Computed example of a mutant assay.
Amino acid sequence: MAPTKNPAKTTQRQIDHSRFGYARVSTRGQTLEVQLSALEAAGVAPANAYAEKKSGKAGSARPQWEDVRSRLRPGDTLVVSKLDRMGRDMREIMETAWSLQDLGAKLEILSGPLAGVYDPRGMGKIFFATLAGFAEMEREMTIERTNDGLAQAAAEGRHGGRRPVISKDMMRIALGRRADGESVTSIAKGLTYKTASGEERTVSRRALYNAFKAHDAERAEAA
């Protein structure tokens, strides 16, 4: 007689070691259990599930995300319960997505309006391009709000500003590494700066890309 199947296991996918999970909650009383259970039910082995509690403040380090990214290989799949678990704002979500594109890894979102599997090497590239569009729109809105604030401050006789994230010394290093064929993502990961409060942050891929773009445009104009 054939063994009876366990009905509790039929709702779960078979464990696939090319699938990795990432769960994140803020530190304000949230727990990770629901997300981790969803990842396991989606076929992510517990050893491949990475979870961390981080505050809602964007820009700070995410060691568990860095760990899972270091293990992802082309063709692997990163599984998240919802899109917003990938980051604390649109910029961070987009940087996470760029990392997956660079790695050739797929993204699977288990719930929410964008639930599905997205392969950056196939039709999923449209999804990643759409995310990039939203990130750019958010960036432009932030710039517009900043410029409005500066204009208002100038009108009130207040002047000032903050130091650029990428200094001249950092730019020289970045240009040298780019000349050696290193990717923008890899270069950005190795560049850090300190905020006005003394917090150390990593330069974003978008910031470095814009710095390269401005540098190249300036060189072309000079030529």
Score class of each variant (00 low, 15 high):
K106P: 07
E144S: 14
E156I: 00
D102E: 13
L150Y: 15
E108L: 08
Q152C: 06
E138M: 08
V117N: 03
D102L: 04
A153F: 00
G112I: 00
A154L: 08
F128W: 01
E92D: 06
S111F: 03
S111W: 03
I126T: 14
R158W: 07
M123W: 04
L131M: 15
V117R: 09
R121L: 13
A97M: 14
A153D: 05
M141L: 14
A153L: 08
G149V: 02
A135H: 13
L110Y: 05
P113E: 00
L100K: 10
G104D: 09
G149H: 01
R158C: 04
P120G: 11
I109Y: 00
G157D: 08
I126P: 04
G116M: 03
M123R: 12
D102W: 05
I143S: 15
S111N: 08
G104M: 05
R158Y: 06
Q101W: 02
G124M: 02
G133N: 13
R91T: 12
A129S: 15
A97K: 10
R145G: 08
L103C: 11
E136F: 00
L107D: 08
G124V: 07
K106G: 06
A135T: 13
A132W: 09
K106W: 01
E95D: 15
A155P: 03
T130H: 09
E92Q: 09
G104V: 05
G122I: 07
E92S: 04
E138L: 08
G124I: 01
S99R: 15
D102H: 12
E108H: 01
Q152Y: 06
L110D: 06
M141H: 13
E108W: 02
G112D: 01
G149L: 02
A155R: 06
N147H: 11
G124E: 05
G122P: 04
G116V: 05
D119C: 03
H159Q: 05
A153C: 04
I143T: 15
A115S: 04
G104F: 07
V117E: 11
G116D: 03
A153T: 06
G149F: 03
A155F: 01
L131I: 12
